[in-house]
Amino acid sequence: MTPTGRATAPGDDLRTWVPICAYADLIPERGAAALVAGDQIAVFRTFDGRFFAVGNRDPYSGAYVMSRGIVGTRDEEPVVATPMHKQVFSLVTGVCLDDPETALPTYPTRVTDGTLEVSVE
């Protein structure tokens, strides 16, 4: 399987990319927390090999735990459920599918030489 990040968009070259971890370090459908310039970010690898990065803070409980949620799908959308009270968020848009008023910040990802990178700008 070829690791792919979010589709490259115009302007990506101008971003600052921060290396997070090796591709192989992430278990499929499980997340990990990363600290990037003082922000907590949750990174996930889905079953089909894509990577996503969202904010690690669960907006409902205020705890920094999104990386520990269960990853799956709703309809076709890849999602993560907060481990606290199980609200479900899209990994693509960050929007809470149970309550579209609430969303997690999302961050672009890519894989370079087997390393997962995130941009926080």
Partner: peptide, 17 residues
């Protein structure tokens, strides 16, 4: 044991929250 870290990219830093 590898999953029991605060941050994959900063395992030495405890969760500041």
């Amino acid at each position: 044991l590898r999953r029991f870290v605060s941050f994959v990219n900063a395992p030495g830093t405890p969760d500041p929250s």
